[in-house]
Amino acid sequence: MIEKVIHVGVLLVLPPLLLGVINKTKAWFAGRNGPVLLQTYYDLFKLMRKGMAISTTTTWVFLAGPVITLATVLLAGLLVPMGRFDAPIAFTGDLILFAYLFGLARFFTTAAALDTGSAFEGMGAAREVTFACLSEPALFFALLVLARVSGSLKLTQMLHGPAGGFTAAVAAPLVLVAIGLFVVLLAETCRIPVDDPNTHLELTMIHEVMVLDHSGPLFGVILYAASLKMLVIGSVLLHVVFTFQTGRAWLDWPLFIGELLGLAVVIGIVESVMARLQMRHVPYLLIAAILFCGFGFILLVR
């Protein structure tokens, strides 16, 4: 029980810190001081107290979009185990629900973007749904590999691995899957090299351009849901990359949080040393992710 409470606590409290760590890393690479680590929390509080400007073109979909996105991502977060602890909710086949919840979030994010009738937001929506068509198969290949290795269709057991731990034979497929999943993580959370969260040039953005017209509390919800999504997909990736556990609960929670922050640092480094890809080259990156995960699968069943 206490584990479930901690799980929900980490899920609710930690996400904005990840954005802070990424920004701090990027600032450090650029030789700046950068915003404080807790800046995203301050931003969220500030946004929650603000008023909203709502376009006259919009309907209820515009208001419901961010809320539904947050609800689905929260629910998805309850399906993913953290560290060596089980997820609060686990059942056979929850991996499919996990993947499809993100589909629901995407449907409403993009519909809310189109609700404004703005061409910029239309561009963002088009890019978002197009790139998802390539990242979904990659995610599913990765989940197939994990299901095959663990012999289970529960996310908790799949991510914890088989009872006796991973064998050497599955090392190569898992490495490939980890690379593929990392690309999926970058694409789904809209980071460089797929998307640039900082740019203010609408023509080159995906996620930021979709939410141009959201303001105040709704924008806060969007910001929070985006960081939550990073935490959720990040914990899936971390299970593939780090399998080391101490066996003591009071050490394993800090260890897991440390891993998450480490992942944020890696994302920050990637963002600092790379440029955003040209929009027409992004599909190649995502197809590469499909290939990594697909070859992981083929290596496993050969």
Binding site: A111, A132, C133, E136, P137, F140, L144, I290
Partner: peptide, 17 residues
């Protein structure tokens, strides 16, 4: 199964449109 996943994502794209 990944093909079915891709069908799902494409259907989302189509109906969002």
């Amino acid at each position: 199964a990944p093909v079915l996943a891709m069908i799902g994502a494409l259907a989302v794209a189509c109906f969002v449109k």
